[in-house]
Write a protein that binds this DNA or RNA. Structure first.
Length: 236
DNA sequence: ACTATTTGACCTAG
DNA sequence: CTAGGTCAAATAGT
């Protein structure tokens, strides 16, 4: 293997490792719920939260992209005036879009539902949420939630936009709040898989090599997640 | 009374 | 013209 691994591929491998850690933490937390020496489930939840946060960060675009997005968002806000109902730009080229699949729609932000729509090729409607702090802090983050058609117990959540509100994840101020929330009604803690939606123009031609059966499985799962990675398997 | 959700209309991109 | 994202009045919940 050479060192010229495309950045996007490196990112995906990092995500793969984080997902593995996240899934392990999820299982650990679930196992510890019944037998829980020294509050170990909270520790597991803490580890889980770290993986989730790391995945959230790694799945987002670069700092430069953030700055450009903020600039473009400002100019859009300037040109978009009140009273122009439904006058908006579709985010066709927005880089700040990522999707997770989870057993719950609960996350670390507060959201307000503003719409629901029947989607053509889906039997389940799509719900539209915006950040609760859109009005008081101008946070433009939104998300769309939809049941997955192959498993109605799972929700696919697409996050659009970056939270600019100060009420960033409650986890940063109190981990306990996260634990309470995640333990309260939806148990076990959902396992998350992250799927970054990349822009078409940055889609690389990726060839990854793997040389053991475990990695083959992992990469095959990744292929399902990302769809644009090719795989070469060494028969050793 | 106030806040959140529902839901049909409105609007744009493709 | 259609699909889907957003608005805002009506309604429900607290």
């Amino acid at each position: 293997m050479d060192n010229n691994i495309p950045e996007s591929v490196r990112k995906k491998v990092i995500i793969k490792e984080l997902v593995k850690g996240q899934e392990a933490a999820t299982k650990l937390k679930f196992l510890l719920q019944n037998e829980n020496p020294y509050g170990a489930d909270h520790l597991a939840a803490y580890v889980l939260r770290s993986f989730t946060e790391a995945l959230s960060i790694i799945s987002q675009p670069s700092c430069d992209d953030f700055l450009n997005l903020i600039k473009s968002a400002d100019s859009i806000n300037e040109s978009r005036k009140k009273g122009r109902r439904g006058c908006y730009k579709r985010r066709k080229s927005a880089a700040e879009i990522w999707t997770i699949v989870s057993q719950t729609i609960v996350d670390n932000h507060s959201w307000r539902k503003y719409g629901q729509k029947k989607i053509m090729d889906s039997e389940f409607p799509r719900s539209y949420f915006r950040c609760s702090h859109k009005d008081d802090q101008g946070c433009s983050a939104t998300k769309q939630v939809q049941m997955t058609h192959d498993n109605p117990d799972m929700y696919q959540t697409t996050y659009i936009g970056i939270h600019t509100c100060n009420n960033t994840p409650k986890a940063s101020t109190s981990n306990e709040a996260i634990f309470v929330n995640s333990d309260a009604e939806v148990t076990p803690t959902p396992s998350l898989t992250i799927k970054q939606e990349y822009l078409k123009e940055e889609t690389p031609s990726n060839v990854m090599e793997c040389d053991d059966a475990d990695d083959m499985l992992v990469f095959q799962n990744l292929a399902l997640e990302f769809g644009d990675i090719e795989f070469n398997f060494d028969e050793n």
